[in-house]
């Protein structure tokens, strides 16, 4: 099974898997220019994520290892999410009862999210988990799982 790892912590790797290490790569920001929808369909003006896009879309599973920042996803990870808009079409469908962008690719990977649990309370944790569930549901991933890891798990 082809797997990709996106990590903000942990240093292990899987043989033959592509790793996006967010702890040492700052993702270039989405400029909101819409070139990826209007001018070069599906293609971002930046090229720092070309490998990521390829591996994301061709993997069966993507495992995320995330740190919690100010009670939410980090700014760098949020920037990565913003930059994922080229993987979808501008057209919107409402079949699920809410607005959702159409797929650009035939299939999207299953998602497994490990996070380093530093929440102040259960309510913060719920917002974080609900947000990630929603994001990957809207990114057309069928199976999404979240696993909180406690402090002593961190290397």
């Amino acid at each position: 099974m082809k797997t990709m790892i996106v990590r903000e912590y942990h240093d292990f790797f899987l043989p033959d898997s592509y790793i996006l290490d967010l702890s040492d790569q700052k993702i270039k920001g989405c400029t909101g220019c819409w070139t990826c929808w209007w001018k070069t369909p599906g293609r971002c003006i930046h090229h720092d994520l070309d490998f990521f896009y390829h591996h994301y879309i061709t993997s069966e599973k993507v495992s995320f290892y995330l740190t919690v920042s100010q009670g939410f996803v980090s700014g760098n990870l949020k920037t990565l999410f913003d930059r994922m808009i080229p993987l979808f079409l501008p057209y919107t469908n409402y079949a699920s009862g809410e607005s959702m962008h159409d797929k650009r690719y035939d299939r999207y990977p299953d998602i497994e999210i490990h996070y380093y649990d530093t929440f102040l309370d259960a309510a913060e944790k719920k917002i974080f988990e609900d947000y990630l569930q929603r994001t990957f549901y809207q990114f057309h991933s069928k199976n999404i799982s979240l696993i909180g890891e406690m402090r002593d798990v961190r290397p």
Binding site: I27, G29, C30, G32, S69, Q70, F72, V73, S74, G75, N76, K78, T79, L80, F81, D82, M84, I85, Y131, R134, T135, Q138
Partner: peptide
């Protein structure tokens, strides 16, 4: 701000991280 992927744009989260 605009809504970006169901939340704030990355640049806004980077500011929040410093608050």
């Amino acid at each position: 701000m605009p809504l970006y992927i169901h939340a704030m744009p990355g640049i806004v989260m980077k500011l929040f991280e410093k608050l």
